[in-house]
Design a protein around this nucleic acid. Sequence first.
DNA 1: ACATGTGAACTGCTTCACAGCG
DNA 2: CGCTGTGAAGCAGTTCACATGT
Lengths: 206, 206
Amino acid sequence: MKRIADSTVRRLSIYLRFLEDFEKRGIATISSDELAARGGTTSAQVRKDLSFFGSFGKRGLGYSVAELSARLRQILGLEREWQVVIIGAGKIGAALAQYHGFAQRGFRIVAVYDSDPAKVGRSVDGLVIRSLDSLPEEAKRHPPDIAVLAVPATAAQEVADMVVKSGIRAILNFAPQQLQVPETVAVKAVNMAMELEGLSFALTNG
Amino acid sequence: MKRIADSTVRRLSIYLRFLEDFEKRGIATISSDELAARGGTTSAQVRKDLSFFGSFGKRGLGYSVAELSARLRQILGLEREWQVVIIGAGKIGAALAQYHGFAQRGFRIVAVYDSDPAKVGRSVDGLVIRSLDSLPEEAKRHPPDIAVLAVPATAAQEVADMVVKSGIRAILNFAPQQLQVPETVAVKAVNMAMELEGLSFALTNG
DNA sequence: ACATGTGAACTGCTTCACAGCG
DNA sequence: CGCTGTGAAGCAGTTCACATGT
């Protein structure tokens, strides 16, 4: 398959969210124009994005909401459940562990790790915090799919190395730190500081 | 000034973080090559990014760490303090209010709002949670610069409209919902669900 | 000699515009 | 006729390569 742009995948997520909304409201059909208006893009963009994966629409009519959302879930890999571990049980990590929005979309939090012995053994939202040292061994028995890094920036690279060595192939990084990983490992970063600085720039040079 | 690409601004943030690191370690000079290696980009990219704002380097030598970081702080608008309000005192909002990493970079959280009467009056990290209804009026007296939206997706657009009407010109949106705002308002989104779906896609089609 | 700064070439995403089909 | 699907055109961001300055 031709390589798909990041921006395209992000938009597919957005489309899917709208489609699920429409599905709930019992709307059967939607046009690329309607999808575009809600997603802040253009109808041509919507059609182009979808065209990478096939032709799902009916000319003169639009897309079947049920069919298109099913195809998008399939494309995005949301038909299966993903095993997620959270690393770092501080403020952010704990908030994430308690955020049930993940589970709704098939991202199941199966464990929380921390390197602080004072935290190990406590519970967050029904999950006992485990020692980070035990990750490699436990990952061998029950390989997680995704590691969420909610650790201080100074520890992030070291933890990432450990995660990679444990065989985990996807990382969602909340630490304000650029990670170096093999290119077989997928990394997405959520960097609040960077976004705030983007706003600061916009306000300053707007 | 020529319009600056989002990607450029994001990289400036990254460079600044490294420069501050180098500053602490007492390193006086740095080349575009070193900056690039750490930031996962190329030296040409670094030089191009900086060239939009001037010529800060010395040929044959590199950049003065102190000088360049000062210029970047200036460019990014980090020389002043920004007044931030958090809207939504749920799990995410509370975690953000307690996250002191913001303050370090000049983003001062001045208020937390929630529409739930059961939460209003309680405290998060020393800040009393206020009624969302009081935002427009309070914003008139002490205009905040940035609103952080940590509300459910269903409420996000409505809250965004209120924020815009209150005169706030920058929004950091944590709700998994595309916001429609006037183009005079800057919006950055932090969408964990979307990032996870990006990882799901990468794992599925990798 | 070395590293910057930058026009030019390139790559790839977005937009256009229209043929194709229901 | 209306809306999709898609080559072609346009545009923006990245990379190249070298002249320039120290």
